[in-house]
C-alpha cells in the first residue's frame, strides 16, 4: 500500500517535472547557428584546399563530422585556437606551416593568356581572356596559391604583402635600427 503511494507520487512528480522540462526545452530553445556555419565563419575562406578539402565549407563540414582542426595553414594558430574553443577540444599543432600573407601576381610579359589560372582561382580574382594578358585583383586574392601550379609559363608569383605605415602592428622590436653618421 505504502509502496503504491510512493510509486504514484513519484510517478506524478516525474510527470510534472517532465512536463516542465519539456516545456522549457521548447520555450527557451536557443537558436544557434548550425555548427558548420560557425566553423565556416572561423575559417579564413582562402579556399586553398590545403586541408585536403575542396574549399573552406567542405572542411567546415568535415570538422563538424569530427575531422582534425589543425589542417588550415592559412588560418594558423589563431584559427586552431578558435576552432578548439568552439568544438571543445584541445588545440593541436598546425599541420603544415604558416606562411606570411601573400597575393598572387601575374608577370604580364610572360603571360600567354591561357586562362588556366582563371579556372583555378576559387574566388574569381583573376581577370583576363584567352590570349589576353591576365592580371590578379590583389584585393580579392586570398593567397591560396592554387593558380601558381597550373600556369604553363610559371608567370605567377606569390608576393608577400608589404607592411606599410598603415598596416604596421606596433611591433617595436621588429624595427631594425640603422646606424647613421
Amino acid at each position: 500500500m505504502s509502496i503504491g503511494i510512493a510509486v504514484i507520487s513519484l510517478g506524478l512528480l516525474a510527470l510534472i517535472f517532465g512536463l516542465i522540462l519539456g516545456y522549457a526545452a521548447i520555450r527557451f530553445k536557443v537558436k544557434a547557428d548550425p555548427i558548420v556555419e560557425q566553423i565556416d565563419a572561423i575559417l579564413p575562406q582562402t579556399q586553398c584546399g590545403q586541408c585536403g578539402y575542396p574549399g573552406c565549407k567542405p572542411y567546415a563540414n568535415a570538422i563538424a563530422n569530427g575531422d582534425a582542426i589543425n589542417k588550415c595553414p592559412p588560418g594558423g594558430e589563431a584559427v586552431i585556437v578558435k576552432l578548439a574553443d568552439l568544438m571543445g577540444v584541445e588545440p593541436t599543432k598546425l599541420e603544415g606551416e604558416e606562411k606570411p600573407k601573400a597575393v598572387a601576381f601575374v608577370h604580364e610579359d610572360e603571360c600567354i593568356g591561357c586562362t588556366k589560372c582563371i579556372q583555378a582561382c576559387p574566388v574569381d580574382a583573376i581577370l583576363g581572356a584567352t590570349r589576353q594578358m591576365h592580371t590578379v585583383i590583389a584585393d580579392e586574392c586570398t593567397g591560396c596559391e592554387l593558380c601558381v601550379a597550373p600556369c604553363p609559363t610559371d608567370c605567377i608569383e606569390m608576393i608577400p604583402i608589404d607592411e606599410t605605415t598603415k598596416t604596421w602592428q606596433w611591433d617595436l622590436q621588429s624595427i631594425s635600427i640603422k646606424e647613421v653618421q
Partner: peptide
C-alpha cells in the same frame, strides 16, 4: 587596437572571399 582592426579587415575579406567562392560554385 591594431590586432582588432586587422582581424576585422581579415574577417571582412574572408566574408567577401566566401561569397565569391560560393557564387563561383
Amino acid at each position: 587596437k591594431a590586432d582588432i582592426r586587422q582581424q576585422e579587415q581579415e574577417a571582412k575579406k574572408a566574408e567577401i572571399a566566401r561569397v565569391r567562392h560560393e557564387a563561383r560554385q
